[in-house]
Computed example of a mutant assay.
Amino acid sequence: MMATYADMLKTFNKIEVSQNKPAHRYKSLSEMQHIELNNMLIPSTPAFTEKETGEHFAEVINPQNPFNGAFSQYRNYIMHRLMYSYGLRVGEVLLVSLDSVGETLPDSRGNTQFLLIVQNLPDDVIDPRRKPLSLKTSDSYRQIELTNDDFILLSIYRTISCTFV
């Protein structure tokens, strides 16, 4: 029998934060809570066929994810990853756009990096919020090296979000 969202929330809230162990990124979550949250937010994947190999992959549904649609699932999972793995604050995550992510030019050895640029919105972009977001200090401007997996997730999200434009 599949657990309901309310049951999963009750189980999640019963896990207590250890006061004796150092927290990694979310100081309010225990390691077990982080694992449960991460497992809940992993997005479902549609069936697809790899173009290069012709290998077919079946659809995988995450029944724990409470969000409907690939767009919401990927967006929320990426926000979680950026905050947990890279230490971004909520306001910084809200400033991230699809143009904030890219690959560097190859260095002398041919290696590239995947970067996330955290910066204020360009002057020509109008923020519709009542209080427009901005970084607190000039030290808040950052270039963060992304892992290959996170860059792939952001690339998938870019593809998904372009279908909603």
Rank of each mutant, 00 (worst) to 15 (best):
V60Q: 13
E92D: 03
V90T: 03
E59T: 08
M83A: 15
V96R: 05
D99Q: 12
L98A: 07
H80P: 02
G87D: 08
A70Y: 10
F67K: 07
L95N: 01
R81L: 12
N68V: 11
A58Q: 14
V60A: 10
S97T: 15
E92A: 01
N65S: 04
I78M: 07
V101T: 14
I61R: 02
S100Q: 10
H56D: 03
Y74P: 00
E55T: 11
L95M: 14
V93R: 05
N62V: 12
R81I: 02
E59R: 12
F67M: 09
H80T: 03
N68E: 13
F57N: 08
M83Q: 15
F57R: 12
V60Y: 12
N65P: 01
Q73I: 04
L82K: 02
F71Q: 12
F67E: 02
L98D: 14
L82Q: 01
L82P: 00
E55L: 09
A70T: 11
N65G: 02
R75M: 13
V90Q: 11
D99P: 01
L88G: 00
S85M: 07
S100D: 11
Q73P: 04
H56K: 15
N62E: 12
P66H: 07
V93W: 03
V96D: 04
M83S: 15
L82H: 00
Y74W: 15
Y84T: 01
A58E: 15
G87Q: 06
V101W: 02
S100N: 10
V96C: 14
V101S: 06
G91F: 14
L94Q: 14
F57M: 06
S97K: 09
G87M: 07
G69K: 06
M79E: 13
L82D: 00
S97N: 12
L88P: 00
D99S: 14
Q73K: 09
V96H: 05
E59H: 10
M83P: 01
A58W: 05
V60G: 02
E55R: 13
S72H: 08
L82C: 02
Q64A: 12
G69D: 04
F57Q: 08
V96I: 15
L88I: 07
Q64M: 12
Q64D: 09
V90E: 14
M83V: 02
G87F: 08
V93Y: 02
S97Q: 15
N62D: 11
E92L: 06
F67Y: 15
Y84C: 04
H56M: 06
V96Q: 07
R81V: 02
S85H: 05
Y74T: 00
G87I: 05
R89W: 08
V96A: 08
S72P: 00
V101D: 05
E55Q: 12
S85I: 01
M83G: 13
G69F: 09
H80I: 02
F71H: 15
N62F: 13
P66T: 07
D99T: 09
R75N: 14
N76S: 13
N68P: 03
Y84Q: 10
N65V: 06
Y74Q: 03
E55W: 04
H80C: 07
D99C: 04
V90H: 11
Y84F: 14
I61L: 05
